[in-house]
Write a protein that binds this DNA or RNA. Structure first.
Lengths: 348, 348
DNA sequence: TTCTACATAGAAAGCGCTTGCTGTACGGTT
DNA sequence: AACCGTACAGCAAGCGCTTTCTATGTAGAA
């Protein structure tokens, strides 16, 4: 049998109530009593029963973190930062919390299922990372779920995700549009006029916003976009590779390729190299996110740095109520253009 | 107030017991009754109370995954694979399980704390990934904790970690020694005789085993190792960069650098380039793990591929009791040498 | 001294669910 | 016709904790 509170109480010659109070430290207990209890806890190797405690106290020390793909450092970095702030071991705050990291794979169904699961666990807080799907039906369902959660007292924070109006969720949104615009303006400034764009999966806010930024920049400089210059694909290396070959096939005169993110950009670089093109002499390449490996690409990748760790940490603090929510419940987090070796003047 | 089982029962005109049985599907219920109950559940938007359920049933649907660093794809890939198999949404098996991913930062204290936390939650299973610390005291403490967990019915699986004897834990161990040996033998085969080695942090099994493999290869070929050829450092890019400069300072005649892992190798490449050395013409470089970005390095990295996803998936299945544990509770997972552009014949 | 106040400790009522056991009705046996 | 097995459904006793309310001992106030 496992040891229960009552066992500890018996051994310490006190009532279960007292043991509970010693363990929770939320009620005055005489020092001598406390000591006796702690000794008994130690001797019996007692470990509190989490579910029972959660049930009785109607609270939980679980915090949910939803990510699209945990194997992707983009999400891993944010998740790690969130976790470091929610006060698990190593965190500062007392209450030890457990981070539940959920892989949604970017599908709305799994997002919903996980939210329900977290609701079932009565999670103390939930952090949703990454862009949202733009499927109307599911979006409404997610919003409804978020509202339920916030109404039940769960703090909900969106990190790198557009705001969800009327849900009570706090949003820390990335300025994907602004970053996309800045990036493309940099290339235009270098003299590029024929730019290919490898967009992410359709129906994603991140994809759309970055693309919109790109187009805004083109329009601002009077560059008319050729529809052949945009290709959609997944957010992975292979998609970038294939999309680049496709772009090259459609228009071999492109002088720059802008990718939806760094991983895709790496695939693009590989495709260009395999096609015998030099970077940036023949074609410039740009990414987005500035993941750790981007600086190690050869040449180093020009990209937009997103402060993933900072944003995640802030999301964690807000989720724990340790930092005030931004005014209006919405904060915009800006990226920073990182100009490196993969972008240069176009060939004459 | 939140909706309870009793509310649903009242609305469906049945007893709470029946509602519970419909929800759990583990007891015959007439179709018409079931329908009525499900309708009530739907209308009331009822969500089961996880803690209460866990308490009453003395089971939990939480599965813990311990990783050293969630932002590192090495762990992210394994964690993702484990999660995909434990039957969360999207997984096959019925019981929806939540993966609790815990960042230990590689410290034994946090590892212990997290194990206690998971024990408190009465986790259904726990998967520990990554190498173990070789600190005797802590190692014993962790072993004791693991034994407690397995005794309490929690399935414990070690993934990419040495076996923990007498704990009841199943081990899926990476053959770091063999991989390290193979890698160095490859370099020796190319003609290298002066090889630098950038080892990971000391007191880690992974570090030690890979280094031992390296040395075994050297010894097997009668190469006497110069103590100056080994430098220890963290498992990150910067450590690789600095260690490489240090190696170069100690012995500029080195013709190859073997890194503890791919991330470190990337830092090594950067340091070599910044020192005006060409890869592999002047110095060959080799990594370990074969993370996704390694093939995109220029030149592509010679390394040892560890089947992280496969091992993680298998660990997940074993943890869920969906796959038989290996004989003796221990399985060795071998790596595969991937020869790529970063290694070549030494300069004359 | 008697009363009030404070500091502690205990008794006990749940928290919302699961499940063993106990009906009850019905169809099929003998 | 009496009997039994089967298929459901409900009762009620917990699961192990938290917390309100109450009891007690002691100290200072009157």
């Amino acid at each position: 049998m496992t040891v229960t509170l009552a066992d500890v109480a018996a051994r310490a010659q006190v009532s279960p109530a007292t043991v509970s109070r010693v363990l929770n430290g939320n009620y005055p207990v005489a020092a001598s009593t406390r000591e006796r209890v702690l000794k008994a806890v130690d001797e019996l190797d007692y470990v509190l029963n989490g579910p029972a405690s959660a049930l009785a106290a109607a609270t939980s020390d679980l915090v949910g973190i939803l990510v699209n793909d945990i194997a992707d450092p983009f999400f891993g970095i944010m998740a790690g930062a969130v976790q470091s702030e929610i006060g698990g071991p190593g965190g500062r705050a007392g209450g030890e919390r457990l981070a539940v990291v959920c892989n949604t794979g970017g599908t709305p169904e799994r997002e919903l299922t996980y939210l329900t699961l977290l609701q079932r666990q009565r999670a103390a807080a939930v952090v949703l990372t990454g862009g949202a799907m733009e499927d109307g039906v599911h979006q409404a369902a997610v919003a409804a779920k978020l509202r339920k959660l916030t109404e039940a007292g769960t703090r909900v924070v969106l990190c790198g995700r557009p705001p969800a109006p009327d849900t009570g969720a706090i949003a820390l949104t990335f300025d994907n549009r602004g970053g996309g615009r800045e990036l493309t303006e940099h290339l235009i400034g270098l003299g590029h006029r024929r730019l290919g764009y490898i967009a992410g999966p359709e129906e994603r806010t991140t994809t759309r916003h970055r693309l919109e930024g790109h187009r805004t920049a083109l329009a601002a400089h009077g560059i008319e976009e050729d529809p052949r210059w945009t290709v959609h694909g997944r957010y992975d290396r292979q998609a970038g590779y294939e999309a680049t070959l496709e772009l090259l096939r459609r228009d071999p005169t492109l002088t720059a390729v802008v990718a939806a993110n760094d991983t895709v950009a790496l695939g693009a670089c590989a495709a260009l190299r395999d096609s015998g093109l030099r970077i940036p002499d023949d074609v410039s390449v740009a990414g987005f996110d500035d993941l750790p490996f981007s600086i190690d690409a050869v040449p180093a990748l020009t990209t937009v740095r997103l402060p993933l760790a900072e944003a995640g940490a802030r999301a964690g603090r807000v989720a724990m109520g340790r930092e005030e929510a931004p005014a209006g419940g919405i904060a915009t987090v800006r990226g920073e253009l990182m100009v490196r070796g993969s972008s240069g003047r176009p060939r004459a």
